[in-house]
Write a protein that binds this DNA or RNA. Structure first.
Length: 267
DNA sequence: CCCCATGTTCGACA
DNA sequence: GTGTCGAACATGGG
């Protein structure tokens, strides 16, 4: 599930254990999510360290532990983080569990597209330090959006919004929400956008990122019916702006929902 | 049995 | 190099 806002929600699920030390680590060593890590070494390294900080950037999560330990998690398509009782017994899809004095921190992922990384060192690893500005941050400004568009003039906007080097954290539903609000057809090539639409794209990108973080990122609140969000999953639902039917189409390899009445393709 | 899924990566190809 | 497409990954739901 997780895009920017859901990742933020899951980050918060581990906050209750901040300041505590890792007592024990349970893991499923064969799981695909450890593909670039040595799980046994991760477990023995984590045990005894103090949990200092939980951060998110786009879809990337970084958990800091004492003695220069960095734990990176990516939730993939179906990853989730939760807190449970310390005595919990890991279920089939609970691949990594940090047992703390007052809670067990659980990373579960039934499809196993997620990823676990870790790093020891005073300076941050590349996967944490080399990240582009997130859409809701001041560094994501108009000039930056203009540069992204200049760099990919022939790319269709649906695909461009899913590019994590350009729009970190934006995923399938957020991309559709942004284009729908900006009234841009998802197959429009970035380079053919007029200045008014580029401004609109910028504003709606920031707005969707910010508002999603406030709703979903805090307590998983469902966005209101005035958003595309609650309508996009049901076949045959109507666009809340035009009242006309929504359309579903594969664009850039992903199921895309848009409102043909207000999102016209520019050639 | 079929098709679909909020992600990423890789190879083939124009 | 740019961009698109399909497949792959692994599992479950409808």
């Amino acid at each position: 599930m997780p895009e920017l806002a859901e990742v933020e929600f899951y980050r918060k699920q581990w906050l209750p254990a901040i300041g505590e030390r890792v007592r024990k680590v349970h893991l499923h060593p064969g799981a695909r999510i450890f593909r670039e890590t040595d799980p046994a070494r991760l477990a023995s390294t984590l045990e005894g360290r103090r949990f200092l900080k939980a951060e998110a950037h786009g879809k990337q999560l970084c958990f800091r532990f004492s003695e220069n330990l960095w734990l990176g998690l990516h939730l993939g398509m179906s990853g989730k983080l939760a807190s449970a009782e310390p005595e919990m017994v890991p279920a089939r899809h609970d691949h990594l569990v940090l047992v703390m004095p007052h809670a067990a921190l659980v990373f579960s992922d039934y499809r196993k597209f997620g990823r676990v990384r870790f790093h020891e060192g005073a300076s941050p690893p590349d996967w944490w330090s080399d990240l582009p500005p997130q859409p809701h941050e001041p560094a994501f400004d108009r000039p930056r959006l203009e540069a992204i568009i200049r760099h990919h003039p022939r790319k269709r906007l649906k695909g461009l919004l899913l590019d994590q080097d350009a729009f970190p954290g934006i995923g399938n539903w957020m991309a559709d929400e942004i284009l729908w609000r900006a009234r841009i057809h998802p197959a429009t090539k970035a380079g053919s956008l007029p200045a008014t639409k580029r401004r609109r794209l910028f504003e709606e990108t920031r707005a969707v990122a910010q508002q999603s973080l406030e709703l979903i990122g805090n307590d998983w609140s469902t966005p209101p019916d005035s958003w595309l969000f609650p309508h996009r999953w049901k076949r045959g639902d109507l666009c809340p702006v035009s009242g006309k039917p929504l359309q579903h189409e594969t664009i850039c390899g992903r199921t895309t929902c848009f409102s043909p009445a207000i999102q016209k393709e520019i050639h």
